[in-house]
Design a protein around this nucleic acid. Sequence first.
DNA 1: TGCGGAGAAAATATCGATAAATTTTCGTTT
DNA 2: AAACGAAAATTTATCGATATTTTCTCCGCA
Lengths: 262, 262
Amino acid sequence: MPAEAQRRIREEAAAVGAPTLTSFVFENLRRDIIAGIHAPGEKLRVEHIRAEFGVAASTMREALARLVSEGLVTAEGQRGFRVAPMSLADLRDITRLRLILETEALVESIRAGDVAWECQVVAAIHNITRAEERIGSMKAEDFSHWEECNKEFHRALGAACTSPRLQQLVEILYRQHERYRFQSMMRSAEDSGGTTRLRRNVHAEHEALMKAALDRDEDAARRILADHIQITADTFERRLAAIGEPKAKRAGRKAAGDSAVA
Amino acid sequence: MPAEAQRRIREEAAAVGAPTLTSFVFENLRRDIIAGIHAPGEKLRVEHIRAEFGVAASTMREALARLVSEGLVTAEGQRGFRVAPMSLADLRDITRLRLILETEALVESIRAGDVAWECQVVAAIHNITRAEERIGSMKAEDFSHWEECNKEFHRALGAACTSPRLQQLVEILYRQHERYRFQSMMRSAEDSGGTTRLRRNVHAEHEALMKAALDRDEDAARRILADHIQITADTFERRLAAIGEPKAKRAGRKAAGDSAVA
DNA sequence: TGCGGAGAAAATATCGATAAATTTTCGTTT
DNA sequence: AAACGAAAATTTATCGATATTTTCTCCGCA
């Protein structure tokens, strides 16, 4: 009954307001990859996921092509697609570029930002503060909500930047980084028996960042953001390295090859 | 006779050694866009180019998706594809990012580069020198060869950089920039009656750049490269602005809408 | 036992056709 | 004559099926 699955997908896509089936599939698969449902390095057999999503091969293929452009999937001509591998080197690479680009976007925002931008930033940090209060409950849901707020705060910081390309690159890098963020969180949760703790004084860093931004202190803001990004990455690195090999969440027929965080 | 066109395309693709029909179409269309054969903002009707290339719609579509990820084509859900517009603001945006990223890549190369890297750089500049000698003949072909050498030189400078992402971004930005480069060259050629002259002392800049790189003088190299990129962009900007509206090279049925270098 | 290659199985890339949306055309009404 | 809206025509997005390539398997041979 392909018509069945097809109708379901189509309805779901329409419900979310996806302009196109392809973009719906794209978003979903992206989420799955970030969440580690497809392990790094795992082969993505078009025929399989195509069936899973209930769409045609060419639709699936186009969604995959988009993921390739986001760096979450790799493609080798005539040899299909696979989930982009993860590695410490890769995390460092992402971090390095985030350092360069996000600080640049922030500085530009500080120069060009108007009051509306300031409001965005203040609102975002307020949101985080609230989320942090709730996080005491240690529920995974609250934590992922905090993640969302954190993401929004970072976006707000660079929102006044006038370069569309710069913003886009920052966005893409953040998404790639999110995969590591997610892994790190999972590991941490496993370690502490299902709950998650906020590491170090993230809140203070955010406050300082906001203050520098509102004071239009470019140098301070740049420095603080750089430290923030670097420290975050270091934390992840330690966590991932400490626990060692990642386990494939839902092992396909054969284990996912060579990819490893190690 | 679709089988005819199909066979021809396939042979041609095989001859160039393209791993896939899609990638062949992708490369060709990219060249066409950079060369202005498809004007900025022009609508790319899948059905048309599909027929022109002699491939199926889904193949064409995948090639277009890749071009979207390179920023040379834009796509709006349910409303098809069009050539990415060009504008002064866009040129400035590209330039800004090139300034950030290429200098970073260069500095990294200087830190990490070994003798093999030095050789690449020296070889590349020698190549340019030879090309510059030939350029006296004022033939368009020689000029485009010089362009190729110039591109190679820039690539060589960043080749020792250890960040794959950084290299990739630099590459993509250079390609986007190439479109402006090409336009600028065409205008210049029209103005001077079909021939092209080398502007200013590019050669001296290249020499200085190489020297700083080989001396491992990060600061000097960064400064020179930044100036080099900025000056190049300024030159293009002046040329394009001076001559005004771009003319669609091969006007489709209707003029290509709003896009303009102005 | 281990190597190499023919053949089968699976997966990829590509095609031609269809359904859904867009844009255009053209007649009608105020 | 302008504006509106419905039907036609074009175009996009999607599908199901096919041809080609890669991968796996298994058998013969040194």
